[in-house]
Amino acid sequence: MTTSIVTPGAAPEPEAPVHVTQVTESVSEAKLVFQRFIHHKAAMIALVVLLAILVFALTSIGAFGFHGWWPLSYATTGPVIDGGKPTLHFSLSPLSFSAGEHPFGQDDLGRDYFAIVMRGCQQSLLIAVTMGLTGTVVGVIIGSIAGYFRGWVEAVLMRLTDVVLTLPTLVVAAFIGRRIGSLGVVPLGLFLGLVSWTSLARMVRGQFLSLREKEFVEAARSVGAGPFRIIFRHILPNSVGIIIVNATLSIASAIILEAALSFLGFGVKPPDTSLGQVIGLYRQAMDTRPWLFWWPGLLIVAIALTVNFIGDGLRDAFDPQQDRG
């Protein structure tokens, strides 16, 4: 009696499962991440929406010295027409859309609200990105030093982080904002970033702690690689995913922080504007002139939401979970 290898079945029918074969093509991990991100529907939609907002905000009233296509400026006052109501009309039947002269309405000094909101959008985005990036850089530096060198260096830095964590970010930001707010948007963003590094520092430190025990780091050490090479060539490149995801999410929370800050009056000061500041100014007008509250608010939510979704998409792209059925 003989036994033999079972030959694979007949040609597979449509529903029959396929055999998995080893495909070897040279695909770098960055490419894989990129492909996964593209397939994340929510993140892609969010990306498109965010880009649309960005383009709109930048081109409508112009930026960096370029003129936009929107005729009105955010600074010129004028007569208040029709109580400042928005002239935006949209109806489904008949299908019609007209922007009118003041699609977002006017404020109590007759300035065009659309222009104000667009300007506010630009400023808020600028602060948020500056703050997010600064915070990320500081956080990565502190986290790396703490995570690599361990010992008393780590202990000191972590205790420092603990102390900073006892102060709510908004509170610290308020202190800073009160002093710096009038200096302009970019300085404000920079200084705010300098005090918002705690979560990223902790995360990077965690990454360092886990990666330094990995064999490839030990292999590099055994060959005589110095701290710099290990940090910059081995550990950080493998933390890029986490850092990018957290940087994105911190931009989202930066937008919200700045809005709250300016709302309270400790952020951007007039004549500069930002979305939060505008809402703060017209907070009481909610009943009578709701458009003064709604438009900037919607934009804040839209920007924060899209950035959050993008961050989530990035997280899934860098660290995919189990494939679903």
Binding site: A252, I256, A259, A260, R283, M286, G297, V301, A304, L305
Partner: peptide, 18 residues
């Protein structure tokens, strides 16, 4: 959850108030 996360607290508060 994302939505709540993305809304500033003053926005939520004002909407609730209304």
């Amino acid at each position: 959850a994302f939505l709540c996360y993305s809304m500033p607290s003053f926005w939520i508060a004002t909407m609730l108030k209304q």
